[in-house]
Amino acid sequence: MGFTGLFLISFLVVHCYVNALIFFNDGGVKFTEAAHFMGTNPVIRIMEIGLTVGIFAHIIQGLLLTFENRAKRPVGYAKTPGNKSSKWYSRSMGLLGTLILLFFVLHWYHFWIPNRASQFMGNGEIDAYAKMKLVFSQAWVVIVYILGCVSLSFHLMHGFWSAFQTVGLSTRKYKSIINGMGMAFAIIVPLIFILMPLSFYLGWLA
């Protein structure tokens, strides 16, 4: 979980950076240029296969871990400590991951699948900026995207530090730095993502 998690975190950085180019408010010129590079560069295309494998490996590991661990306590407690000894989001990674996956299905349906399908048919890339404008004009879509990003935020609040702990890097010396970076990452990155649909919906972007 740790290794795949760190890999997916690195992807979020790139995804967030490229998409944040829309905030230049230049009608999507800079963004389209970057998206074109990401959509056509052969190195990126090969990395995309790695990313797909990474996401599904993370999901399968997560499911196996959840079900295996659940079987390790056949008789449960009548009383549990609740939030006294651990954070709710640390205990709910499976649930948060499922919510993120549900959001991803919609997200892929909106952008990734139409784009790759269009390329496959030989029609080139879709106009992702125009598609964003169209998709994010619907209130329910914006709400689902916000909820998806909030789930991602809580998933990262535990996941960022936890990944470093799993690979043995969260030493006493660096733990507070890693925790701080994790919290900052978990809040800033999803917040930037939330601002994207919100900005289109509220008409902040041309």
Binding site: K72, P81, S85, S86, S90, S170, T171
Partner: peptide
Amino acid sequence: GSCTNTQACEAECPKGISVQNIRRLN
């Protein structure tokens, strides 16, 4: 079971064993 780093163990340990040991084990 497998560790998912919730840190409940450290909070409940009567001897205050730190999860830093789990980091070292990994």
